[in-house]
Amino acid sequence: MALKTTEVEAKGGPSRHRSLGLSDEQALRIYEVMRLARAVDERMWLINRQGRAPFVISCQGQEGAQVGTAAALRPGYDWVAPYYRDAGVVLWFGMTARDQMLSFFARREDPNSGGRQMPGHFGSRRLHIVTGGSPVATQLLHAAGVALASKQRHEDAVTNVYFGEGSASQGDTHEAMNFAGIHKLAVVFICENNGYAISVPQSRQMAIANLADRAAGYGFPGVVVDGNDVLACYEVARQAVERARRGEGPTLIEAKTYRFTAHSSDDDDKRYRQAEEVAIWRQKDPIQRYARYLRDAGTLTDEREAEITERVTVQVDEATEYAEQAPDPTPDDLTTFVYKQELPS
């Protein structure tokens, strides 16, 4: 039980990011992407509640786990296989607020799917973001396959694959970890454990406290990390990515975090969790917590904060305006891309 699990504690004081090899600008870039992910998400809820768009699914509360781990990769060279909350991951990998909003409004120009998939179903070949569907945990095996491709080509690309603790119950999760362990594939399995699969709490999902314990059964290390501490997430992810790049195999990172919103715009979380619990976790907001650190470190000044706020607000405003007015797919778009060349009907 938990023999191979290490608890990664926040440490290092005001120069923590520098001791991790992050420049002040890199540290601020991480902060700005977290802010952007949050701001896009908040705008989507606003628009949804005004009845201008049918569905939102949120990243809120999990931005630290997302951006912190993605920041350990080389965008455009490494791969990510995100799940539906991973706005922070894909924004770090080069997607834009406009891309997200085009997807949110299901417009023709949506680069993820041309308006075919619900929001949160990311994918971009150019950006090395594996296209995902709605059934959970399937992407863990795709990530193993992508990593096998890298290995067979003798490339040192690493694939980060993301999932929730609910997905950990799926057979594909076991299969992927088993296979990646056998072949020492360059996959980093990142569980954003937010405590609930819609309404079902972790205690009804697994009999253990730490999912990371399972890594031992697959022959690779498991690490528990505070998912609301973005620098801790970066630190464990960087170690895992370096290990993978050296050909030493996968790591399972369990980032303990929390979602601030209901599962989706169609869910009412008051039915299964207490407002007090949400309030406690909001005190641990990864963005506010990181902002406090950056201010203490002297990296984030009032002036920089204002600049970042301005840029984020402008991006969200422009993205919203652009996407809301962008054209819908046409009926002709319904039947394209079933096959490379359409079959005779």
């Binding site: 791969w79 070949r125 594996v130 399937t138 095996l141 795709h142 990530a143 193993a144 396959g145 992508v146 990593a147 096998l148 491709a149 890298s150 067979q152 057979g171 594909d172 299969e175 992927a176 088993n178 296979f179 056998i182």
Partner: peptide, 20 residues
Amino acid sequence: MPLAESSIAAVAQGLALEGF
């Protein structure tokens, strides 16, 4: 492959999307 058909299909998919 391990005795796991979902793995066989989905690892093949991962290989395919990366050029195999």
